[in-house]
Design a protein around this nucleic acid. Structure first.
Lengths: 193, 193, 193, 193
DNA sequence: TATGAATGAGAGTTCATTCAT
DNA sequence: GATGAATGAACTCTCATTCAT
């Protein structure tokens, strides 16, 4: 069953959902076509399961880093580092992730499963809570937290894609530093020492 | 021919490339199915043509605003405002744009046409040139301009999508202000008056 | 479209619904497989349409004969003769008819369409009304009309099948005479002159 | 092995041959899927075996009643009562029986096994012999015995189905009385005391 | 030039049957 | 004997593309 999820991740990432045939997945996993259907009800269900698992792993990864920190700045850094770290080790999923995290891009007829939506919401909520706490504490300037979440998400995704796609994964460290600095400046309150 | 492009834009935006049948496009454009093939070699060619035209219009729009400005900050603001302005009036295309601007998301078997890639590159080059000029002039701090371009693109796209998708186009003015402030902080040199 | 219905009638009759592939129907009709789907939404819809058309023709045929008569005995004879007559000229449909007229035999996942059920009901209602009228007039003895309808239907179907299947259509005249006599005796009131 | 036959009878009756999967049968019988194939060569063989057993039981039941009678009228009544009696206690099989007794309805690719055909023939022969004897004895009027067999079979089957299907098994007694009277009238010689 | 009926390759899915354990 | 995971042929259905009119 994990064989199928692995094969599916690779192919969906390389060719996209619509261009990947169930037969391709089965062949890559070295099984017969019909065997997939013993484990997954349909192609969509397979894709949904893949997304849920990865999203769950991502959330878990973020939470682990996040809870070790206490200040808004610390939590923000933890979330940003967690993102870079997770996708550095899940590059194939990155390409799928940006499609599905941005609903407009989804290629599935049916959108994310409710479970996956829930996980996506919880990832974003970590960031939002952090920003709101930072605003209250005066670390960040007053702003609409939803806009900030959108800005930071989009910025981070695109930077990661840039490194993974154009730089073949090189320069992730530099990009992380840049991202941190850029975002912290963007969020910073005008008060300067 | 423009009828087909208009119909295609609407349907691709609403349902996605894979879920849109040539017959649907023809019907919406009020022509026979076969007629499309008098003007476009294939479904992909139609999609490619649509992208090229829109990209060209986008580039033209950006250039017009851009050339009216002389300072890096002015040009940056022109590009950001131009983006918001263009997509506020091309909301349907926005959903297609984010798919194709981020090549990973493309649903087509074949990626962007070379012409479209070229146009995309020229849009990004405007921003890149602006950033480089700003770094030289000391308006912006020293940084890798490619990272800055990626960051700003992703940030802007996601903010626009947030407004168009979740807010139904409301709040674009506020989002533009937020975007400007966020990006200018992120780019700003440490020197403060 | 009629080509498909003709081909479908023949093949469903010969091999049964489940054993008939859409490709078989298309080939017999001398069309490509996909063409069927321009006219029928699905295999079930094709079958449903076939049944409806034939049932409608059968009902029309029965009604024509029925309305020319005024007495219960006359109407009964008209219905019985109409049945023999119709199926003598629709032998292929006879085999499908008995399947679907007897719901237990239906091979479709989904049963008859509501339209077909309605038509089936109206065919049976003609017979039922006739029997009730005959009972009231004293031509027939008192009995449960539903039982009589079931008895006469089953008797007639099986006799027709016997002739069509085992006798290759021979002996229909003799069978009709036998059926009339048998049923009239069965229904007759005990009063004899 | 009987477990499989019981499970198969239930499922074939409820859902039909084509809609019943071997796995369903195995699960209901509380065995593994592969185990069925230790006892039956194929799905068709299982169905065939089921039919043969039931047909044999039916024949035995008929013969027992039949041989206790000496007159044609007595034998006829025994056969009719035997039929009602058997199917009242084998309602699930009734639905399969009508399919297979009327070969046109068979859902199997291959028709009845030769053994089952033989048994079917012997059931019908009992009735046929009875009718011929009755004609010779003058109890029944002169007629084609094959037509009479067909008429009586079809009539009886449909009446039984009507009770089992529409009346949920109620009214079998009334139906049996009606059937006897109807058939005896139909067969009766014109001579009246 | 415009059409839309026709096509057929290709996709997802089912399930009777097999066989290593 | 019993199992149930694995199989792959077969089937239904879709749709980009063609071409006779």
């Amino acid at each position: 069953m994990d064989d199928f999820l692995r094969a599916a991740e690779q192919l969906f990432s390389e060719k996209g959902y619509g261009q990947t045939a169930m037969e391709d997945i089965a062949r890559l996993a070295e099984y017969g076509t019909g065997t997939i259907y013993r484990y997954f009800e349909s192609k969509e269900a397979l894709y949904g399961e893949l997304l849920e698992r990865k999203m769950a792993a991502y959330l878990e990864h973020l939470v682990a880093q996040y809870e070790a920190e206490t200040t808004p700045r610390g939590k923000l850094r933890a979330l940003l580092h967690g993102k870079v770290d997770f996708f550095a080790r899940n590059r194939e999923f990155m390409r799928i992730f940006v499609k599905e995290f941005v609903p407009e891009c989804s290629t599935m007829a049916a959108a994310l499963t409710p479970e996956a939506r829930e996980l996506r919401g919880r990832c974003l909520a970590l960031l939002r809570d952090t920003i709101e706490a930072g605003i209250r504490s005066g670390d960040f300037r007053a702003m609409d937290p939803d806009l900030a979440v959108a800005a930071i998400s989009g910025l981070g995704n695109e930077l990661l894609l840039h490194c993974i796609r154009d730089l073949d994964g090189e320069g992730l460290g530099e990009a992380e530093g840049f991202m941190m600095a850029f975002i912290e400046s963007g969020l910073a309150s005008g008060d300067r020492p």
